[in-house]
């Protein structure tokens, strides 16, 4: 149920000098939850997935339709991940607003509240910038996570502010921190950083900054330059 990706080498993050720790050859593997096919085997999640597939393929199926029209579901959902009791759908970026609208409006889904929009940066991936949406269904007391991956070169995806007005500031923050551009947002400007700020601070290649501190004669480097276990 897991995919393995390399988590890097060594233990101390040493580079550029000889390995004196003896851990330089250590290859760390990170296990990440694998993508599942439908049905995922959890009743609650299958209900949501079936409901979404049905809604996306255009409403109720008639009796004589043996093969359900899931084409449209497979077109917009790239991966399904169930991990630690939480359902994550990786959605094609261009479809995010439509998927959100379906999740909000369909009677069997009713995700009325968009709890959170934020981002995560995975520099090792081609489409490194992930926009993450947490939706809440108050009717069914369920939660779902949607994830959209875009590349840093073309970080565009549709804004969901038309569907969830509350996403306004949260998309602005995601733009501010990650540089993800939400097309169709009414006022996509920086929100936490000053307007003339350069760069997007939450990206992994953006340094933390800081100054060395002298304490009892010894100089302690800023947190991002300290030697640390990886």
């Amino acid at each position: 149920m897991t995919d393995s990706v390399s988590g890097g080498r060594g233990l101390f993050g040493v580079s550029g000098s000889g390995d004196t720790s003896g851990f330089g050859g250590l290859v760390r593997r990170t296990r990440v939850p694998a993508s599942l096919g439908r049905p995922v085997g959890v009743e609650e999640f299958d209900e949501v997935l079936d409901g979404l597939a049905e809604a996306l393929s255009g409403g109720e199926r008639t009796e004589d339709e043996v093969e359900p029209a899931f084409a449209s579901f497979d077109e917009v959902i790239e991966r399904i991940v169930v991990d630690r009791g939480e359902l994550t759908l990786h959605v094609k970026p261009e479809a995010i607003a439509d998927v959100c609208r379906t999740l909000r409006d369909d009677e069997g889904l009713r995700y009325e509240l968009c709890s959170s929009v934020s981002g995560v940066d995975y520099p090792a991936q081609d489409r490194r910038l992930h926009a993450v949406y947490h939706l809440t269904s108050m009717t069914y007391r369920r939660r779902i996570r949607l994830e959209c991956a875009v590349s840093a070169e073309d970080p565009h995806l549709p804004s969901v502010t038309e569907v969830y007005p509350t996403a306004d500031w949260q998309e602005r923050e995601t733009y501010d921190m990650f540089g993800i551009v939400f097309d169709g947002h009414p006022n996509l400007t920086r929100i936490l950083m000053p307007d003339d700020w350069e760069g997007h601070p939450q990206r992994k290649d953006y340094p933390l900054g800081g100054v060395p501190v002298e304490y009892k004669g010894a100089e302690i480097p800023p947190p991002d330059q300290r030697r640390a276990y990886k």
């Binding site: 990440v32 630690r84 939480e86 995560v120 939660r143 996570r145």
Partner: peptide, 14 residues
């Protein structure tokens, strides 16, 4: 100094 390792993944706790 090292702390503990936390298995990869993501959660949302409200």
């Amino acid at each position: 100094t090292e702390g503990f390792r936390v298995p990869a993944g993501q959660v949302y706790i409200p």
